[in-house]
């Protein structure tokens, strides 16, 4: 549990293995919500928030419940149920305690249940970080660090992409490339740039 682990996890998850451009998780919000910068910021804040809580909770469940009771094969069912109910719970808590936060994040929260980035990070924590011998707190710390980095990476890309898209709307694109095709090619070029960061750690 040190700063090095935290910094490495953040940089690696945010820039090198970027969740959208390298791992292809969360493409639906990437194409759907990135039309305006303001909604992109709202969505990425909501994703970061839920992702950190969800990965802490799912890691805990796997390490303290599923593995000791020898039922790790139901992890998929358990995780999706936990995430779905967690999103509902977070929505209720935010609604109760912070009206302004609910106003800015509220409409994005229901969309997050089917956002594959959340489940993808939870599953990735199990296959990538969890081992039989790792102490619980150390693993939890790494899992949370990775999810913070992933959430930040998601926000970074979705915000940059929404800014590009606002410019794209005003440019003269051939009719058959308008909309999703040109967005995908732009994403491909961004991904090409991020490919250059591979190997810095």
């Amino acid at each position: 549990m040190s700063f090095t682990v935290f910094a490495t996890a953040i940089i690696s998850a945010m820039l090198i293995n970027n969740v959208i451009l390298m791992q292809f998780l969360g493409i639906c919000p990437f194409l759907g919500v990135s039309k305006k910068s303001s909604s992109a910021v709202g969505m990425s804040a909501a994703v970061l928030f839920v992702m950190v809580i969800a990965s802490a909770v799912t890691y805990t469940i796997y390490d303290l419940v599923l593995y000791p009771f020898d039922i790790p094969y139901i992890s998929t069912i358990a995780f999706i149920l936990v995430i779905a109910s967690l999103v509902q719970f977070v929505e209720m808590v935010i609604k109760k305690f912070s009206k302004p936060l609910y106003k800015s994040l509220g409409i994005y929260l229901p969309l997050i249940t089917t956002n594959c980035a959340i489940l993808g990070v939870s599953e990735g924590n199990i296959t990538g970080i969890w081992t039989e011998t790792m102490p619980y707190w150390e693993g939890l710390f790494t899992a949370v660090s990775v999810s913070v980095g992933t959430g930040l990476g998601f926000g970074l890309i979705i915000f940059a992409f929404s800014s590009i898209r606002e410019k794209l709307d005003g440019s003269n694109v051939p009719a058959s490339w308008k909309g999703v095709p040109i967005s995908l090619v732009v994403a491909g070029i961004m991904s090409l740039a991020f490919l250059g960061l591979a190997g810095i750690i």
Binding site: F24, L184, V185, A187, G188, S191, L195
Partner: peptide
């Protein structure tokens, strides 16, 4: 990964 985006585009 970049090729995936460009190909689908």
């Amino acid at each position: 990964p970049p090729g995936a985006f460009i190909a689908l585009g």
